[in-house]
């Protein structure tokens, strides 16, 4: 699973890299615009460990933000599955708010909270929260009639059992949504670091951007891809383990 995902990433990365080199040599662009192999190699040797730490820093914030949004989405999803007014209100509110590009709110968060960890965490969580919430609400508000009927008719149904049945029956969908939103969490954190931060790979890319140093950016992109792939594979493995443990496979 891990080697397949990394292999896929490397293919995409090197296709993009080859395209870049093709543009450079076909248009005879200078090393200042698109650096040559030696410059990229030098940047790789000089910044690899520094950028790796920065990517791990970003990944740690993304994982925290992701966890935060999973917890929030589960909690709100449990309330949003209700058929009474509060459930309807939450569903309508979630559908409307998710239509707004949350990243546009990021500057306000930085004005209010500054450029520390809390801003990065909040933006990462907000960006992956709404897609997660919509999916969780959808899953938890959809009755599994052929299982729930018995518990309803014998008056054994309670909210915990209802959530358990619906989550279990849709475990595959839930895991897909969680894995999908992990990428969004990473995107959210990097975007937050682009806007204003004092750490993380987004911050490093911003500096490289000011220096017009594409070699550094290519090294950063490579490390982001590798680390994100590892995190996604870990989540997929976790999902499979959970399914195995609870006996759905």
């Amino acid at each position: 699973m891990l080697h397949r995902r990394i292999y896929q990433f490397l293919m995409i990365y090197f296709i993009g890299f080859a395209g870049l080199m093709l543009v450079k040599y076909s248009l005879n662009l200078s090393d200042y615009v698109i650096p040559g192999f030696s410059e990229i190699g030098m940047a790789c040797r000089r910044y690899f460990w520094l950028y790796l730490l920065a990517v791990l820093n970003t990944l740690a914030v993304a994982i925290l933000g992701h966890l935060l949004s999973i917890c929030m989405a589960t909690l709100v999803g449990i309330i949003g599955r209700l058929t009474i007014w509060i459930g309807s209100f939450i569903r309508v509110a979630a559908y409307n708010i998710q239509a707004y590009p949350i990243v546009a709110v990021a500057p306000i968060i930085f004005i209010l909270l500054g450029d520390g960890l809390s801003s990065r965490l909040l933006i990462a969580a907000m960006i992956c929260y709404f897609p997660l919430l919509l999916s969780i609400i959808g899953i938890l508000s959809e009755p599994v009639a052929e299982i729930e009927h018995f518990f309803e008719s014998t008056r054994r149904m309670n909210w915990q059992l209802q959530v358990k049945i619906r989550a279990f029956e849709n475990m595959h969908k839930l895991m897909t949504v969680i894995v999908g939103s992990a990428t969004l969490a990473m995107v959210g954190t990097i975007v937050a670091e682009f806007i204003a931060a004092n750490a993380g790979i987004g911050y490093s890319i911003r500096i490289a951007l000011y220096q017009s140093d594409l070699a550094k950016i290519l090294v950063a992109l490579f490390l982001i891809g590798i680390c994100t792939s590892i995190y996604l594979v870990f989540l997929e493995w976790l999902g499979m383990e959970i399914k195995k443990r609870i006996g759905s496979v």
């Binding site: 052929e146 299982i147 009927h149 018995f150 008719s153 014998t154 358990k164 049945i165 279990f168 029956e169 609870i246 006996g247 759905s248």
Partner: peptide, 13 residues
């Protein structure tokens, strides 16, 4: 009064 039908399932866990 209980009603049961043939498509019902037991929880998978």
């Amino acid at each position: 009064v209980l009603y049961t039908y043939n498509l019902e399932r037991l929880p998978g866990w």
